[in-house]
Design a protein around this nucleic acid. Structure first.
Length: 288
DNA sequence: ATCCAGGGCGGGT
DNA sequence: ACCCGCCCTGGA
């Protein structure tokens, strides 16, 4: 690992706050100077915008340009997607204007699975804390700018922890779920490499649902945030709320049927409903 | 003190 | 298939 730097000219869809605070990731934090630093699979990365440039700098394994282009989803044309979605209706248009700089990250699959199992019935500060303690407990540390960071543990590192270890890190009832899932992945009952190669989103979801602690919502988050499956539509309380307000108008939002939400999402947003979900989610969470 | 937070599970209909 | 109570934890 060595310190590397990579910069590009600013592009339309790239706002740090939008990307890191739209709820897709747990290991990015804002610095005093407004830049963000995060721990990713390949190391520690800092991102800032200056004089019309986006500057990436970090202690990274492999070529930073390659890592950044993959992680920040540079293959996807967000302007094109935003144009398409904006035409659907004014709600979508407004949400997109608000979260214009969102990009869906391409995060590590194993990390994403464990992180979103931990997210169940939990709040973001606590989720972030648990992941930090987990990483510190059993993974490698790296020093960057005089500060110590901990990489997210790989399967074999995390497998070394007992249920009791997990409980003492504050996972609560999620301890056994993480433990069992970790074992299934380690023993290749579920083969992550195979999942990455699968074409059908339905098949992938089917596989993920076999993991302990992975239900429909968590499975969809994993697929959206680490496998670039834009055709899934994770439904949590916020999405259900915003979808009800905009399209369903049920007096009691808690009684809104998930299937109904899903049906509308597919009809309106089609095979990029996952991206639409992210704009709606971000707008609603920030303006509640 | 009581409630709730980006769900999932298991046991009931 | 739906429904519902319960699950750790800690901050409001």
């Amino acid at each position: 690992m060595n310190i590397q730097r990579y910069e590009i000219k600013d592009i339309g869809a790239f706002e740090l706050k939008h990307i890191f605070e739209c709820g897709q990731c747990f290991r990015w934090n804002e610095e005093e100077n407004g830049s963000y630093t995060g721990v990713i699979k390949q190391g520690v990365l800092n991102v800032k915008k200056e004089n019309g440039l986006i500057i990436f700098e970090g202690l990274i394994e492999g070529d930073i340009k390659t890592v950044v282009e993959d992680y920040f989803d540079f293959d996807t044309d967000y302007e094109k997607i935003k144009n398409k979605l904006s035409k659907i209706d004014d709600n979508m248009k407004k949400s997109i204007e608000y979260g214009c700089g969102i990009r869906i990250l391409h995060q590590d699959l194993f990390e994403c699975i464990i992180s979103f199992i931990i997210s169940a019935n939990n709040n973001i500060p606590r989720i972030k804390g648990i992941i930090e303690r987990l990483s510190k407990k059993c993974s490698k540390s790296v020093i960057y700018n005089g500060k110590e960071y901990y990489l997210f543990p790989n399967v074999s590192e995390l497998s070394k922890l007992s249920v009791e270890d997990l409980r003492s890190l504050g996972l609560g009832f999620r301890d056994i779920r993480v433990f069992n899932t970790c074992r299934k992945i380690k023993e290749k009952v579920i083969d992550l490499d195979k999942i990455k190669e699968m074409k059908s989103s339905e098949k992938i979801r089917e596989e993920l649902l076999k993991l302990d602690g992975v239900g429909p919502k968590v499975a969809d988050c994993i697929m959206l945030f680490s496998l670039k499956r834009y055709d899934v539509f994770p439904i949590d309380v916020w999405v259900r709320r915003v979808m009800n307000d905009l399209y369903i108008h049920n007096e009691n939002e808690e009684k809104v049927n998930k299937k109904e939400v899903l049906k509308i999402a597919n009809e309106k947003f089609g095979d990029i409903c996952g991206l639409a979900q992210q704009y709606l989610f971000y707008y609603r969470r920030e303006n509640d």
